[in-house]
Amino acid sequence: MRILVIHQYLWSHYKGKIYSELQKIVDKHKQDELLVLQTSINELTRAKLGPADRSIHQYNYQVLVEDYYENIPNWKRAQKMLYWVRKFKPDVVNVSGYYEVAMNLVVFYCRLVGIKVIISVDSTEDDNPNIWWKEAIKRFVVNRAHGFFNYGSKATEYMIKFGAKPEQILLENNAVDNQKILSIYKEALPDREKKKEELGLRPFNFIYAGRLMAIKNVANLLISFKSLGNKDWGLIILGDGAEEQKLKQYVADNQVEGVKFIEGQAWYNVPKYTALADVFILPSYSEPWGLVVNEAMVCSMPVIVSNKCGSAHDLVKQGENGYTFNPYDTNELTEVLRKFVEKPEQIKTFGQASKEIIKKYSPEQVAQEMYDGFKKVTHEN
């Protein structure tokens, strides 16, 4: 079985781990071969988060263009993708999404020449406004696939709506490098109190980690935090982006105390700051999944996640390891924050629940389910 995977960015460290695990499985079967095409090095919005770490990509891969994704025209992407499809002669191709012209051309070409197609889906119905003609195009592309690797149950619901059959759902999982994240977190813990003192942090802290963009809804998070008015709790905002100055101005103008802004970090530094906090928050208006939730749960943290994030529906067990909320309702978020402020003793029990829940969301498990999916669509035993 010859497996070809087409992905967008080499920078995606979590995918690097999953593909590395997939390579290990493939190597156990001498008749199988894996090739991963990375379209680009990174995307422009993540340019400040550090270069792609090639050392974590322990699998057979090719970078199609050594540039940022947005700088590569669709025709060039399609040309290079189709070149490798013809050269590698795969039995099955896994493409990322159904929204990019070049990827869709690969789908149509594969169907034309009899190559099986699996689409990786990170979208949900809540992601973007659903315009009828765009939905029609999505439906057309989706119905060309033989199977789907979905990032959670909400993505599956979306594909079923478009006509995918339940037996075509080959994966409902998404993972980070659990072991690496936990290792970095544990290394940082002994210096936790010292570092908190250096940064002027409060005894307890909520933390948001991600880009500072309007869709991430950090503005409403600040409004909700301000309403708490508790001097024992602070808020760490880790990241940078277009909204940074606006958010800082709000804090200054409204004299919101206890907020600490920290510049964006490379992925391997984020757990060091997670170690300084107690409860993780992802307040986004829209998020296909939100892998930062996985990372926080690996570090045994309670999580507060917007119900517009895909991971909220699979990873958050209400009242057990965290809470979900309506991102448009600042009062609701304030009340959820207050649950931890009033009962900080539940932080540990919620964190332990997170640690247990996240165990099955591992790169090893994702890789195995991917391999099983490839075997299923190619009808090999």
Results as ranks from 00 to 15, higher is better:
residue 21 E to D: 15
residue 22 L to C: 00
residue 22 L to M: 14
residue 22 L to R: 05
residue 23 Q to H: 04
residue 23 Q to Y: 05
residue 23 Q to D: 15
residue 24 K to V: 08
residue 25 I to W: 01
residue 27 D to G: 13
residue 27 D to W: 11
residue 28 K to G: 10
residue 28 K to Y: 01
residue 29 H to I: 03
residue 32 D to V: 08
residue 33 E to L: 01
residue 33 E to K: 04
residue 34 L to Y: 04
residue 34 L to M: 12
residue 34 L to Q: 06
residue 34 L to V: 04
residue 35 L to C: 06
residue 35 L to Q: 07
residue 35 L to M: 02
residue 36 V to Q: 00
residue 36 V to K: 02
residue 37 L to F: 04
residue 37 L to Y: 03
residue 37 L to R: 06
residue 38 Q to V: 06
residue 38 Q to I: 00
residue 39 T to D: 01
residue 39 T to R: 03
residue 39 T to Y: 02
residue 39 T to M: 08
residue 40 S to A: 15
residue 40 S to C: 11
residue 41 I to R: 11
residue 41 I to K: 07
residue 41 I to Q: 05
residue 42 N to K: 06
residue 42 N to W: 11
residue 42 N to T: 06
residue 43 E to T: 07
residue 44 L to Y: 08
residue 45 T to W: 11
residue 46 R to N: 12
residue 46 R to G: 02
residue 47 A to F: 11
residue 47 A to R: 09
residue 47 A to Q: 08
residue 48 K to M: 07
residue 48 K to C: 01
residue 48 K to T: 14
residue 48 K to N: 13
residue 49 L to F: 10
residue 50 G to P: 07
residue 50 G to Q: 03
residue 51 P to A: 10
residue 51 P to W: 10
residue 51 P to Q: 09
residue 52 A to F: 13
residue 52 A to G: 15
residue 52 A to I: 14
residue 52 A to H: 06
residue 53 D to V: 09
residue 53 D to E: 15
residue 53 D to H: 01
residue 55 S to C: 01
residue 55 S to V: 11
residue 56 I to W: 08
residue 56 I to D: 09
residue 57 H to R: 06
residue 57 H to G: 12
residue 58 Q to N: 13
residue 58 Q to K: 09
residue 59 Y to A: 03
residue 59 Y to T: 00
residue 60 N to R: 04
residue 61 Y to A: 00
residue 62 Q to E: 12
residue 63 V to R: 04
residue 63 V to G: 01
residue 63 V to W: 07
residue 64 L to S: 11
residue 64 L to V: 12
residue 64 L to Y: 03
residue 64 L to W: 00
residue 66 E to G: 07
residue 66 E to S: 09
residue 66 E to M: 14
residue 67 D to V: 05
residue 67 D to S: 07
residue 68 Y to P: 10
residue 68 Y to Q: 02
residue 69 Y to P: 01
residue 69 Y to S: 10
residue 69 Y to T: 04
residue 69 Y to R: 14
residue 72 I to M: 07
residue 72 I to T: 13
residue 73 P to N: 12
residue 73 P to D: 12
residue 73 P to F: 08
residue 73 P to S: 15
residue 74 N to W: 10
residue 74 N to F: 05
residue 75 W to S: 10
residue 76 K to C: 03
residue 77 R to W: 11
residue 78 A to S: 14
residue 78 A to I: 10
residue 79 Q to V: 09
residue 79 Q to S: 15
residue 79 Q to L: 15
residue 81 M to C: 03
residue 81 M to P: 07
residue 82 L to Y: 11
residue 82 L to V: 07
